[in-house]
Amino acid sequence: MDRLRLLNRTLQVGLIAVLAFGVLARNVSVVVNALAGFGVTLVPAVLARDRDLLLDPRFTLVVSVAVFLHSIGMVGLYDRIWWWDHLTHTFSATIVAVIAYTVVWAVDVHREDIHLPPPFTGLFVLTFVVAMGVLWEVAEFLAREVAIFLGQEPVLVLYGLDDSMLDLLFNLLGAVTVTVFATTRLRRWGEQLAAWLDRQLEAN
């Protein structure tokens, strides 16, 4: 676990380096994405400190890897490596699927009046990831159009409708990977989350 935390810290340092590069290069896109990514990596520590919710270091590391890959992609890898966008979308979809599956399973365990069969949970996660992917693509398009209208450099990369369809396909790939290969561990995380919810209710 110490090794995982060290890797996570290394990725955070990498994000700071990307942020510094963006500032020196006066590249708003790089700065915004690196800053947002670094903020995301701080969320697990904030949850642990303020809410006593301890996330598995392996999940925290995957989140850091995803935002780091996206941030260095903004430096130029999205344009130079054709599959980089597919890689980052698969990683991001995996994270969304993990969160969705864990939360749904936690609700199933936490609430005695709710029973969600595993097949339904898997289908829900796939649907949820696809829906979030569609919303993200729409947000990318709107953010770009607003930036262009205001005469600013867009902070998100958009390559057209065909690329958006491929993004959704790789989002689905990430979700399928999670629901097929990681359900046992995610159910354990869901049970831990349900236990945390019970503690919060008792404390209140």
Results as ranks from 00 to 15, higher is better:
V130G: 02
L24Y: 01
F21M: 03
L168Y: 01
L135V: 09
A143L: 15
S29E: 03
D50A: 13
V146K: 12
R3H: 09
H110N: 13
V103D: 14
E153D: 06
R49A: 05
T60A: 15
P57H: 07
V178Q: 01
R49E: 05
R51G: 08
N204I: 13
V157R: 03
V146G: 04
A100Y: 09
G151Q: 07
M165V: 04
V129T: 11
N33W: 00
R9M: 11
L197F: 13
F68L: 01
L156E: 00
L156W: 00
R187E: 15
V30A: 04
L156Y: 05
V107G: 14
L55I: 07
V138Y: 07
D52E: 07
V75F: 06
A194H: 08
L169A: 03
M1D: 07
F128S: 12
F128N: 12
Q192S: 14
D50W: 13
D113T: 12
L161N: 06
L24A: 04
T184C: 08
L135N: 05
D50P: 03
T60L: 07
L123S: 14
T183Y: 01
V23P: 05
Q12K: 13
A175G: 14
F38K: 02
A203N: 08
D79S: 09
L11T: 09
V130L: 10
V31S: 05
V134N: 02
V109W: 03
H89R: 12
E202T: 10
V96N: 11
L135I: 06
V138P: 04
V157A: 00
L197G: 10
L87Q: 08
H110E: 13
A20L: 14
R185F: 10
V130S: 05
V30G: 05
Q192E: 15
F128V: 12
L87E: 06
L156G: 01
T121F: 01
S164C: 10
A175D: 13
T10P: 04
Q12A: 13
I72S: 01
V109M: 05
V63A: 06
